[in-house]
Write a protein that binds this DNA or RNA. Structure first.
Length: 564
RNA sequence: UGGGAGAUCGUUCAACGGUAGGACAGCAGACUCUGACUCUGCUUAUCGGGGUUCGAAUCCCUGUCUCCCAGCCA
């Protein structure tokens, strides 16, 4: 045991907190398995936008490479042109970069290797390990067998090498219609692993590819492609998610049959998060059906959505580092993500006063028409972030929730007879209220103590509460977009997305008020609206109209007390 | 049902035959010009049953439960 941290051992690969993949790499480096090299890759298919689940994989792959002085490639797995688009390629490049990772000059595409893959397919045909099959998709399915029964061999399985070579060449040349033939691996129709029952390597598909256009009429399947791409790039550790465990024997079969460099496939559990969905298919549905405004809707778990919401790459990286890597298949609680964004923003975001749901306060004994400027700190713990001036006058707005005509137990904000502090300003005491015909309070009348200017009374008098405010005359009106989780707390497990959506996932406050100092703030500037939450300036903001997104609420002890 | 993988506080990750620990969440308190932050303390776990061992979360056997697989998707 260490002696009270006297000679603290520096963190080494052996002593730092680890995970099973890191352990494998450490072990491999010890045995010299890959010559001490660490080369990983992040291989998305460009068929949608990246989400937080991908962030876990990105941080893992790039993080491991960085830690061990290795490299990590960005490679697009673009073997199915019917689903892939340049729009997705661009967004993925942008998102990985935003997350803070650099693939240097190693941006690759599976489609870069189409010709090589084709040549290797010919090699497998020549080795008697691949054949052209004329069965239809339906027939292939019917002959695949079941969990308990072996499949039956294709009648085309034993064609001669010459015939196979000719047919395969003609598949490429366009002699046959889509779906009429495939190139299959000759492995084992009786294997308990379905992936080994003569898997399809190539299909005939007349679809325009986002990079190769109409050059190809046949496209390689994932299983045939992935290991070889890894091999070409010299990947040492090919990290993927759990559902590919069953594919590993096939991955190995291809690189071994071809006699090329064999990377090691390692599977880990994909990220699951409560209160949101991380399936590309469902996210696409949300976009298509208009439940959200787009892939970058701030409620979306996509990197572009979460970025617009105000999450930072630093927070996301910290989150990914904290969730660990295993094969357990668990679900992370959303509050852990919120914890990390609060932690990051608490350290960096400038404080500002904004009233999201305003109610008018009139200081009866404050001179009409008078304005003064009060000093406010931009950050309570960071004097280097400076001070700013906040205008004060007779008519103010405070948060509606900060006033109660009849205070509940333990409520110590403003109510008739109660004295509170206006942050950085004065002590005020509520003396009366004005109501409209519905009995709703429209004005709260107070008196202030001029001696308490700046926020403290010379007589040492204490107040229980400090509330935030803006001057009605000086405040900017802005639109506050208040977000909650996309899905209901106890969302029913079903494919019907509509029934799972949280109806209050977005609440727009069009008449929110904010101190004038924020005027002109650039999009994506982060603020803490004191006592309310962390917000950032939305892309929709213009010079005339400020729009802010609530990134995350501040922790709210009062809300818990009030609930009891 | 055949194959593959997994099971440790509420959640998640660690402990790699030698004191079950951290983070988040929760609870209680201190501090506070943010009911924020910070700080202090507390609650709670080795899936069941056998074995091996001086000693088992860890090794062995057995049972149970959960996840993945029968695309010409990735």
């Amino acid at each position: 045991m260490s002696t009270e941290g006297l000679n603290e051992t520096p963190a080494t690969p052996e002593t730092a907190p680890s995970n099973f993949i890191r352990d494998i790499i450490i072990q491999d480096n010890k045995t010299g398995k890959h010559g001490g090299r660490v080369h990983t890759r992040f291989p998305p298919e460009p068929n949608g936008y990246l989400h937080i689940g991908h962030a876990k994989s990105i941080c893992l792959n790039f993080g491991l490479a960085k830690e061990f002085g290795g490299k990590c490639n960005l490679r697009f797995d673009d073997t199915n042109p019917s689903k892939e688009e340049t729009e997705y390629v661009d967004s993925i490049i942008n998102d990985v970069r935003w997350l803070g990772f650099d693939w240097e000059d190693r941006l690759f595409y599976a489609s870069d290797y189409f010709e090589q893959l084709y040549q290797w397919a010919i090699q497998l045909i020549k080795q008697g390990q691949a054949y052209v099959c004329d069965l239809t998709a339906e027939q292939v399915r019917e002959t695949r067998g079941t969990t308990t029964e072996p499949g039956t061999e294709s009648p085309y399985r034993n064609r001669s090498v010459e015939v196979n070579l000719d047919l395969f060449q003609r598949m490429r040349a366009g002699d046959f219609p889509d779906g009429s033939r495939t190139l299959r691996s000759k492995i084992d129709m009786a294997s308990p692993n379905f992936n080994m029952r003569d898997p399809v390597m190539y299909r005939i598909l007349r679809a325009e590819h986002h990079r190769t256009g109409n050059d190809w009429l046949i496209y390689p399947m994932y299983d045939y492609t992935h290991g070889e791409c890894d091999s070409i790039e010299g990947i040492t550790h090919s990290i993927c998610t759990l559902e590919f465990e069953d594919h590993r024997p096939l991955y190995d079969w291809y690189v071994e049959s071809l006699g090329i460099h064999r990377p090691q496939q390692i599977e880990f559990d994909r990220l699951n998060l409560t209160n949101t969905m991380l399936s590309k298919r469902k996210l696409l549905l949300l976009v298509q059906k208009g439940y959200v405004s787009g892939w970058d809707d701030p409620r979306m778990p996509t990197l572009s959505g979460i970025r617009r919401r105000g999450y930072t790459p630093e927070a996301l990286r910290a989150f990914c580092g904290s969730i660990g890597v295993s094969k357990t298949n668990g679900t992370i609680e959303f509050p852990l993500l919120e914890h990390h964004i609060r932690e990051d923003l608490n350290a960096r975001a400038a404080r500002v006063m904004a009233v999201v749901d305003p109610i008018k306060v009139i200081i009866d004994n404050y001179p009409d028409g008078q304005t003064e400027e009060l000093e406010a700190a931009n950050h309570p713990d960071k004097p280097e972030m400076g001070m700013r001036k906040v205008p004060f006058s007779k008519v103010l707005y405070i948060e509606r929730d900060d006033f109660r005509e009849v205070p509940p137990p333990k409520y110590y904000r403003l109510f008739p007879g109660q004295e509170v502090r206006l942050r950085y300003a004065y002590f005020i005491k509520c003396v009366s209220v004005v109501k409209d015909s519905n009995g709703e309070v429209t004005e709260v009348h107070c008196t202030y103590d001029p001696a308490s200017r700046g926020g403290n009374s010379p007589d040492g008098r204490k107040v229980k509460s400090t509330i935030h405010w803006v001057s009605a005359e000086h405040a900017l009106t802005f639109e506050a977009r208040l977000y909650e989780s996309l899905l209901l707390e106890d969302a029913p497990q079903s494919d019907d997305i509509a029934t799972q959506l949280n109806p209050t996932s977005l609440v727009v406050k069009a008449n929110a008020k904010i101190e004038p100092s924020v005027k002109g703030a650039a999009p994506n500037t982060h603020f803490q609206f004191e006592r309310v939450g962390y917000f950032n300036v939305d892309l929709d903001s213009t010079d005339e109209k400020l729009v802010c997104n609530r990134t995350v609420q501040l922790k709210d002890t009062w809300a818990k007390i009030a609930k009891k």
